[in-house]
Amino acid sequence: MLFAAMAGHAVAATPALVPYRIEGDAIPASLAPDPGDPLRGRELISGRDGNCLLCHAVAETGVRFMGDIAPPLSGVGARLSEGQLRLRIVDSSRLNPETVMPSYYKVDGLVRVAPAWRGKPVLTAQQIEDVIVYLKTLK
């Protein structure tokens, strides 16, 4: 069950990743043409695609079991801007090379990725925007 969750379904095959620019500790510009959808974002963080609750607790989801490896995300929408959230989800290792937080939008520099996931980011650009919009509602 543990990792049945983590190793859920693969994201649809993506062509090249959308390029982005980092300013300070943020990625200010959206990665996707469409605005994020907070409902989809909410499903992503607790579902198998995002799996954020493996490590983070988000009291607002009402989910019964949540991890405590990482800081709880309640109130994160007040603490961090959209751009700051984007960098932390896209590639936390830019801020902390030792981080346990996986990079959700990165395919380079990974070692021995299982064939089903090779060359694919964990989340698509649109899914990342969905998650950000949801996290911004946690104030």
Binding site: V100, P102, S103, L110, V111, V113, A114, K120
Partner: peptide
């Protein structure tokens, strides 16, 4: 100690 997989985690983490 080797990070691996799409989650980029090692046993140690």
């Amino acid at each position: 100690y080797r990070r691996q997989g799409q989650m980029n985690l090692a046993c140690t983490h």
